[in-house]
Design a binder for these strands. Sequence first.
DNA 1: AAACCGTGGAA
DNA 2: TTTCCAAGGTT
Length: 390
Amino acid sequence: MNHSPNDFTAGSLAGTFAERLIAWQAEHGRHDLPWQNTRDAYRIWLSEIMLQQTQVATVIPYYTRFLERFPDVAALAGAAQDDVMALWSGLGYYSRARNLHRCAQVVVAEHGGRFPSDPEALASLPGIGRSTAAAIAAFAYDAHAAILDGNVKRVLARVFGIEGFPGTPKIEREMWTLAETLLPERDLPAYTQGMMDLGATLCGRGKPRCGECPFDSDCVAHATGRERTLPTSKPKKAQPERYVDVLVIGAGERVLFERRPDSGIWGGLWSLPELTPPTDAPDADDAALRARLSAHAAALGAEEGTVQSLEPLQGLTHVFTHFRLHLRPWQVTLATPGETRTSASPSNGARHAWLDAAGVAAAGLPSPIRKITDALSIGSPNDGQLSLPT
DNA sequence: AAACCGTGGAA
DNA sequence: TTTCCAAGGTT
């Protein structure tokens, strides 16, 4: 690093880094977020997991709903995974939800229902890494531990003039060391919140308000006009395109859904059946494709009836962090000779489920799949009735 | 070590 | 429109 933390005591403003940050937080920081003003480790843990790679405004409604349904760790530990996934549906990074569920069960089974106060013990739990462990331990138990999230990386890169993409092990090690060096002896919750608040407000990614910053006179980036080039951005690479055909198979008042494996994209969620795994080139809309689609639908829906019609629906493109997925839905109508015998809600561990409108509304679906069902008014909030043309 | 894992808001 | 990335962790 170009600067040592001790340089702050020599700045024109009095006080150490931590003292200035804590004073700034008391005056200008955030104090009324839903997960603040509590020492309940369960609530703090839940917020930290939801906030991983996710903005505050996005998390708030999910957090509120989740707490209403699962007010404590025992309630969450005893829940069915499908119910947890349904409440997480739309929030993304679904391994967080599965790890959250597993973590609750470990806390109940191995820690008597109380979260450990030791950051290392916390970090050994599913879904809790070094930074999240430190945040929980600091907020709930006043632990002397440093966080290193995106906010802290940005603040440190700018104030100390640290060059290099913070995602690399070398820069990250350097930042962990610095973050721990800067820790105060006391007021860990205010200090930790201050790091987050400074990075999320004044020292944001876009246009930092250096005039209001407590480190204005000492900030290397500000002094050298590098506010916009620090932290060094991630090296970018071309995003692959992927194409997939999905089937909306309707029989009577129900539609067929397929549970995705825990590993991979949308792990543990309910989705529409795919013809084949995604490919790197679009399928041509030709007779051979239609024949394959029809055969696949017939195999999946054999118990319910025979394929009566096959129609292409409006396609859509979904953008992920590391690729773009082009979804082409096909509507398949089955001629049903008799009663549909299958259940309306997914049974535990089943790979397929015929869901009615209420079942679709309650299921954990990926966002773009929800868009498709909404467009067809299947289980959408406005229209609880299934209205597939027959 | 580098890839993988969602979604939506902001510029 | 495109690009970036947010209270990161796991493999």
